[in-house]
Amino acid sequence: MDTIPDLRSWGGADAYLRTCASRAVLDVIANKWVCLVLGALREETMRFGQLRRRLDGITQKMLTKTLRELERDGLVHRAVYPTVPPRVEYRLTELGQNLGRLMTEIRVWAEEHMPEIQEARERYDERAAQDPMPV
């Protein structure tokens, strides 16, 4: 059995290596709230309250954490306007728009294939609930 070569020699990151920094990026984008925030912000610039209402089930704490992480990674721009109270708006950066397109495709795929996944889960659960058959 051959060992998979280190792919960095062909121009960069190799997420299959545990020390690769791209894994931190994958950790961010694998989060369901990141996927949904990016999708919501692709539609329009939004304020915190609008986002929270759009993302049913997200807590204030999780939305704050997610937005800060996305801002830190250069995917979301946070604009604060000097009003009383301060108005804060969030929009995707160009990099965020690019990733947002991919995340929208993933969300759409999940919505379209949900019935098939649910059926597969039910079949699996039925098999797992049966007593094992002797070989």
Rank of each mutant, 00 (worst) to 15 (best):
L95E: 14
D125H: 13
R123G: 04
R87D: 07
D56T: 03
T64D: 15
Y90E: 00
E44N: 12
D56F: 11
M114N: 05
G49M: 14
E69Y: 09
A129T: 01
V88G: 05
K61P: 00
L63K: 13
L102F: 02
Q60C: 07
L70D: 08
R107L: 09
A128C: 05
D73H: 13
E44A: 13
A129S: 09
L102H: 06
L67W: 10
E89A: 13
P115S: 10
R87Y: 02
L63R: 15
T64H: 15
D125Y: 12
G96W: 06
P86Y: 08
L67A: 07
G57T: 01
M103N: 02
T104P: 00
T93W: 12
P82Y: 11
E94D: 12
W109T: 03
L99K: 02
A129V: 01
Y124V: 00
D73S: 12
E44W: 10
E111I: 01
L70T: 01
R53I: 02
R54Y: 09
T83G: 04
R53K: 14
E105S: 10
E122Y: 12
T83F: 04
E89R: 15
T64C: 12
G49D: 11
L41Q: 09
H77W: 08
G74K: 14
A110Y: 07
E94S: 08
